[in-house]
Design a protein around this nucleic acid. Sequence first.
DNA 1: GTGTCTTGATGAC
DNA 2: ATCCGACCCATTCGG
DNA 3: CCGAATGGGTCGGATGTCATCAAGACAC
Length: 814
Amino acid sequence: MTPSRTRNTTPAFAFGSPSKFSSSGDETPPEYPDLGADPLLFSPGNCPWPSSKPAPYSFLAHVLHQLSQTKSRILLLNILTNALRFFIAHDTASITPSLYIISNSLAPSYVPIELGLGPSVLSKALQSVSGLKSSALRTLYHSLGDPGDVAYAAKASVRTLMPHPPLSIVGVYASLVKISKAKGSGTAKQRQSIVEQLLLSAKGEEVRYIMRTLSQNLRVGAVRTTILTALARATALTRPTNYANLASSSSPYFVSEDVLEIVQPLPDKKGKKKGDMVDEARNVAMTKMAAAESLIKMVFVKHPCFDDIVEAYLSSGLESLAEKVPLTVGTPLLPTLGSPTRSLDEIYARLGSLPFAAEFKYDGQRAQVHAFLPTASSSIGMSSTVQPIVKIFSRHLEDMTEKYPDVVALVREYFTPVGALPPPELAGNTDVDNFPLSSLILDAEIVAWDTDGDTTKSFQELSNRARKDVQLADVTLPVCLFVFDLMYLNSKSLLSEPFRERRRLLRSRFIPRIMPPSLGGARLRHVESVDSDATGEREDVQTFWEHAVESRCEGLMVKLLDSGEILEEEGEEEEEDGGNNKGTSSPKKSKRKTRRKPLPATYEPDKRTSAWLKLKKDYVDGIGDSLDLVPIGAWHGNGRKAAWWSPILLAVWDEKLGRLVAVCKCMSGFTDAFYKALNDRYPENSETCSRVPLGDYECYRSPLDGIGLQPSVYFSPREVWEIRGADITVSPVSVAALGSVSDTRGLSVRFPRFMRVRDDKTIEQATRSDVLAEMWRKQAGASTNGTIRTGVDEGELVDAEIVESEIEEDDYDA
DNA sequence: GTGTCTTGATGAC
DNA sequence: ATCCGACCCATTCGG
DNA sequence: CCGAATGGGTCGGATGTCATCAAGACAC
């Protein structure tokens, strides 16, 4: 069954045949092949562009266009795979730029390079290229909901007089880099002119995808995972020409020509090939592609850099990729992720009786810390003067070392050999390298620290820290590094060690420590935790969870301690084999009513499995904040929500003012059906939805100062929605509860999402702003353990009357 | 020029 | 971060 | 016994609040 190709882009700009690249431009564009075919039956032998030249951007646009014509993952993968095979076969220099362009990036995230372009510059550039006014573009944007589609439409209406040289993929990539390198005064102008050049040179569909790349959202249904799979399959099927002689049919990754030969269907007449042979060859090919896939993914999650991977592949093939591109101290690996759960019951249901650790989930910033001593070559002689190199990466692998010089200093201290003796637990331990420390990668949460109260501070306070070029002396807000995992120690990867062992090493190597204020005052601690097998009592875990919530943590992280198996009810299943031989797995079946599924407790980069479960208080019914708010306005949606209102502006009821006051926007939690129904209830330019306000509500502080939330359209207030959020935040834009917490700031909601319509409530029964303020006080009170200082204001916070409390014990204030 | 305020881009959750 | 929807695969169900 | 229905897993996309920082705009 071949999935049928379905269109999912707006038909407003339909082209001829979906399999042909066509353009509204004046020149006849090159004809490119349909790339959707099964890669095993597809040959990239004929170069679709003049083969001596770099691959043209029009080819990439063709690929992107084909991708956006379908939602089928199989087709998506086929198209991408075949496209990459052309680059491998005919222009290896275009591989990496293509990978970056397809994944909406310019470089690995830990390399600080950004386009620095936004809607304003793009709109100006498009105005200048198309001759259309900004208002015309805005109208187009409201109906199309995508900058690329707007650019395509706008440029389709004009004819360029001067022919422009065709764009190449490497050329476009170079332009993107040039845009991001622009600096200093006049940057915007410079960038705009490069954008204009690109738009002028782009023809037909190229315009759409250039513009989408510039606005950093390609929306073709394929990002990282799909790209990696396609890259793996492409490398399994096609070799670069200069590498052909190294081809070996015995490679576990490379599908040799003779295998491909067998798989091909015979040209009509001599009707039969041995079916068995074909099946077998197909299986061989699939197995090898799957092997390549797991290899490339395994390498990438430990070393997420296309440049390094492609370079190693081109120089010596897949066979030595793992050794050439290893886990590297100084290069971040993808973090393990937690699966959300809604209750402790669910956690036990998922883990059965397997022992786990429950840890506090602090509300701060994830940090992956790398550190190592530079080797002798850079420090001939006095090794004592050599400082360890420390790098700190964020959840998305951005390099944030500059933001935390205090943490850098703290981590360096652990390398200090003076007087350092192995702690007793390590004495005589031979399973790791000896003391002292030489290199490490650890996982942690950085949390703002209240030195006086000896407790954590809120996330909002942490985000007040400066980010760029911070000196130790500049650090005003101390932090605590709550460490919770250790992935690498003294030149040895610990990824395949079970969590219990990694944690043992972490605990024995990193004894809590506080740096003096002169070094920024950062401290290191281990996350607070309990083990389920410590007492075996489920009640203890429940108590611990309550303790976490009271300590204003986000909740718990629950982590499997030892690799095990979970039992799943019902059904029989083929043996799981880790995807290594998909399609060829052994025919053995376990005919039991429960099936076993291995659940590793190893460090699994980028995986969201049951081995790490997060239980956040705002997932759990009855805890966390729920508000009843009134929809009073909206904006035009983008992309797939282009035909709907999204997001929606919501308001609280203000008793004192006797009117509604805007508090936050909301776009999460609505079903498509709900959006459609909303269009019926609030059709544009009607009694219920208009460009002018349709009710007595307040969105701004004053019409003059521009502070506030201004929707594209206003609703007449007539319904109440239950909204769930994680926290109440002090807001520089919201005017809700203005004056009750600060004279200049209102209150808003963190992570708002729609739960249900409250038919039973009138708008006057919506949550009142004083109740909102009360919720904030309660939360702030709990969150600082006695001292309120948000640091985000000018000090005129209303006193929440919280007396210094002594210990963390209990301080649920009256 | 310099200083201050505004705006837009980016990234943390 | 949040959530929803589409797709895919495996398994169960209905005839 | 086969095709249709169903459910879980995975992926992609649209967008929330708040913060900093760089560059632009404007006043002098």
